[in-house]
């Protein structure tokens, strides 16, 4: 298993995957600093809540595209070079699928860890007054990481299925739009029906914008464990189905 995983990393050389992830992370850093640079002092005091709302929103827009690119970079080398018929004589087919997911998940772990670091850096930079509630940081990680993992699973399945990687990339871009619109869905059930909608569905901060005073107020909301449970179930079912499709595919 370790040997096979080592091989996965050997294959990612010169693919620029790290640069893609870094570029998207850079966008989020710039965006979040820009969003916070001229906020009133009163709002900056509640900076953690603001970031726990803003970063998932940015992720909704950026992550589906980034994950589509990541999955495509991981899988298209196998599709383009017809390497599956060689690899499947050297390692178990199912393991190959698992290792692609695991490699992608490593990048997502780094990305999520980077976002946690960004929140802490912003708090130090802008001197947030209200202290960080560690449980909220945990919710944030669960929210971002689990949804991103679900999207990665979908994108890996698509990238292995389609020889032309335009289609999985288009699915990623479409996901960004659907996810963004989902923030405006009033119906919670509707949000639960689309994978990309879970970034907003699992958001544990409520925002209230007063048009008169133009002041935004953030409130805590309970973490939606039901939605999280549904997401985990979807993830498990998706993993089973994706693996089955991959095993069934003749190379």
């Amino acid at each position: 298993m370790v040997r096979e995983w080592k091989v996965e990393w050997m294959k990612t050389r010169y693919r620029g995957i790290g640069w893609i992830v870094l570029a998207f992370f850079g966008l989020i850093v710039l965006w979040s600093f820009w969003a916070l640079h001229d906020i009133p002092r009163s709002q900056a005091e509640d900076g953690f809540r603001m970031l726990f709302m803003q970063i998932p929103l940015m992720d909704t827009i950026l992550m589906p595209t980034m994950i589509a690119m990541l999955a495509s970079r991981l899988c298209d080398a196998e599709v383009k070079g017809s390497t599956l018929k060689l690899l499947c004589t050297l390692e178990k087919k199912g393991r190959l699928f698992d290792l692609k997911l695991l490699t992608g998940a490593c990048y997502l772990t780094l990305f999520t860890a980077g976002q946690v670091g960004l929140i802490l850096a912003e708090s130090a930079f802008h001197s947030f007054v209200r202290p960080l509630e560690p449980v909220q940081l945990l919710y944030f990680v669960l929210q971002i990481y689990t949804v991103s993992l679900g999207i990665l699973l979908l994108q890996v399945i698509l990238s292995f299925h389609f020889e032309n990687q335009i289609l999985p990339l288009a699915a990623g871009i479409l996901g960004s739009f659907v996810g963004l619109f989902s923030w405006y869905f009033s119906d919670g059930m509707l949000k639960k029906c689309v994978l990309w909608g879970y970034y907003s569905e699992l958001c544990f901060i409520i925002m209230d914008w007063d048009p008169e005073t133009r002041i935004v107020t953030y409130y805590d909301a309970p973490f939606d464990w039901l939605a999280f449970g549904i997401l985990l179930a979807v993830l498990a079912a998706g993993y089973g189905a994706g693996r089955w499709l991959f095993l069934k595919k003749e190379v």
């Binding site: 050997m10 693919r15 080398a77 383009k80 017809s82 390497t83």
Partner: peptide, 10 residues
């Protein structure tokens, strides 16, 4: 089997 398998970027 059929065409050779390779990683073009390596």
């Amino acid at each position: 089997i059929e065409a050779p398998s390779y990683y073009g970027h390596l």
